[in-house]
Design a protein around this nucleic acid. Structure first.
Lengths: 204, 204
DNA sequence: CACAAAAACAGAATTGACTCAATTTTAGAA
DNA sequence: TTCTAAAATTGAGTCAATTCTGTTTTTGTG
């Protein structure tokens, strides 16, 4: 039952993603033609569209892998947070940001974000919304953890705060990927400055 | 010197924008073909591209008008803010949000936002970044005003707070336009809930 | 008023994402 | 092993944004 067909399918998925990732890196998202991806993956154009609804979904598959890695890395911080609110937030958001350009270029991020708002109901659009939610929840989980430990005030609206922090970081990240010359260190510093207001309000 | 050519130019700009706005409303952004816009504006396809770099820039011109109206409306609130921090913020952000769907549909917003991150260096991409900045600064100006009046603590980092509030609202607005069934009232309520944390931290 | 240069216009040609009807491959029943 | 239905693949064709090149209009000068 797990026969040939399933194996070929998985293999073709892999070949398409690999070819696309290579070409996106080399030529950029716009520069990578479906025709070229198909050729490099040794499948036809039609097959690509059998596996992915549109070009954006191919990029989406790559972005999802990246974000899932980030979520994974974040778990460690939530389980074992630094001993004060400011550092805990900075560490978690730092992981998100530092990881972000490992596999994806700024251009790829720009495209991915654009597609996710342009086609919110496409497979990737929905997946992306889910990833955002997962990140938001991880931040909320960190806050809940800090409240448990007694590092953050218990009367704070944790979920709302998590959204606030994620939304702000995400918007800052969008502006960051829009400017090629923007540096990660500056991004982190700016976010720290903004979060300082919150940290002051919620630290015990 | 201000002769025929300049007048024709202004007239063609107007005709293109009007035709595009009509068609975007009727058929949606994707559904509106450049060919049709050109026909309705009584110019050729080539001429449209002489006036706008790409389809997105046409939408951009419409969005810019809308946001400028919103900025204008916001000035009144900054000049004469409600007598407490929570209401002042709610009133200003309320104006932004309530105005937002006057001329633009959610689909048009989705496209506009997507384009602004996809092509940050296109004329519209840059304009959009400028508009975001102007909105952020207006929020910061409101905070400064509240600090002057003595309604907000003077030791708060106003500019950073302005960014935080704008970024959060903007991200919430993006999620709002991504879901057709989302309602303005719910959006405002969610933002109020998030801002409550900030209001508690900065109100005198 | 002519006329040359500059600016604007026009629309056919190009390009690249995506579709679709025909063909090939696989699964599994007889 | 043979056969048939279902699943998957293929690539030529479609569609719409954008480009490009030749033509027309405007401007300012002699």
């Amino acid at each position: 039952m797990s026969g040939l067909r399933a194996r070929q399918k998985a293999d073709r998925h892999r070949r398409i993603i690999e070819a696309a990732a290579d070409l996106f890196r080399e030529a950029g998202y716009e520069g990578a033609k479906i025709e070229t991806i198909a050729a490099q993956a040794e499948v036809s154009i039609g097959t690509i569209y059998n596996y992915y609804e549109n070009k954006g979904d191919i990029l989406g598959a790559i972005v999802s892998m990246e974000v899932n890695e980030v979520l994974n890395a974040g778990r460690g911080v939530v389980a074992n947070p630094p001993a004060n609110v400011g550092d805990a937030l900075d560490t978690l958001l730092g992981i998100y940001i530092e990881h972000s350009l490992h596999y994806l270029s700024k251009e790829m991020w720009r495209q991915a974000m654009a597609i996710s708002t342009q086609l919110p109901d496409s497979p990737f659009g929905q997946a992306y919304t889910g990833l955002d939610r997962a990140l938001t929840e991880q931040i909320s989980a960190l806050i809940a953890r800090l409240q448990e430990i007694g590092l953050a005030r218990g009367d704070i609206d944790g979920p709302a705060l998590g959204e606030l922090i994620f939304n702000n970081m995400n918007m800052m990240f969008i502006e960051f990927v829009k400017r090629d010359e923007a540096r990660i260190a500056e991004l982190r510093a700016a976010i720290r400055r903004q979060n300082r207001i919150l940290v002051a309000a919620i630290a015990v």
